[in-house]
């Protein structure tokens, strides 16, 4: 805290206002450290707003590990953490004019981080759902090695395929597992192309509901 205050040289007015975030009364050493760090960041942000590039670079570098930890704690997958941190930094940069140096920096940063984390979690869950539904059905074979970690296992998929009505199972077998064209499958089964499309769609919808629905519970 002192290092930043000496370096920053805030005005008497700013110094008085910034001390408000220190809190009063006896506090634990960790709390004091966190509070001091927040004041540091408040000062660095105020200096960044005034056009000090070095202060800005130092601030962004110092908040990055905190943001990584927060992303990890909130359930962002390891491969997405760096992207999320960069999203947060870009948002912070875009709306840095909204920061008021007389207010604590922590809640401002955390609110931005939470917003981007929620966005990322939504994208992540959507992507997982699509991957889980499509990988086994489009991979050509029902080989467990091709299925992503955490997705549906082979035995379960085979069991659910066996539960499908005969016509739907035949459509999936010919079109998805044996990769026949609609025309070939039509001549094999004697069904029309549109009928095969409907059967495949119903089978996939049912499998998705059963497999993903179960996974979500």
């Amino acid at each position: 805290m002192t290092r930043a205050r000496e370096g920053a040289g805030p005005t008497r007015h700013n110094e008085r206002r910034l001390r408000l975030v220190d809190g009063a009364g006896p506090v634990a050493a960790d709390d004091r450290d966190a509070s001091a760090r927040e004041v540091d960041w408040s000062i660095l942000m105020a200096r960044s707003q005034d056009g000090n590039g070095a202060a800005y670079e130092r601030l962004l570098t110092e908040v990055t590990p905190f943001l990584r930890a927060r992303c990890s704690r909130r359930g962002i997958g390891q491969p997405d953490i760096e992207d999320t941190v960069q999203d947060i930094l870009l948002t912070l940069h875009a709306i840095r004019a909204t920061y008021d140096p007389t207010r604590p920096f922590g809640p401002w940063l955390v609110a931005i981080a939470n917003r981007r984390i929620v966005d990322r979690l939504r994208r992540q869950s959507r992507r997982n759902a699509i991957n889980a539904a499509l990988i086994p059905l489009t991979s050509g074979t029902v080989d467990g090695t091709e299925i992503a970690e955490g997705a549906i296992d082979r035995a379960k998929l085979v069991a659910e395929l066996a539960q499908l009505p005969d016509a739907q199972r035949q459509a999936i077998q010919l079109l998805k597992l044996e990769e026949q064209t609609l025309r070939q499958a039509s001549s094999t089964t004697g069904r029309s192309i549109s009928s095969l499309k409907v059967l495949t769609h119903r089978a996939i919808t049912r499998l998705r509901r059963v497999l993903i629905g179960e996974e979500n519970h």
């Binding site: 960044s48 707003q49 056009g51 590039g53 800005y56 670079e57 962004l60 570098t61 004019a97 909204t98």
Partner: peptide
């Protein structure tokens, strides 16, 4: 990214 963001320091007007 941090280096890029901090490379063009321009004072901004606080809201």
């Amino acid at each position: 990214l941090i280096a890029t963001l901090a490379s063009h320091p321009t004072p901004i007007r606080r809201y």
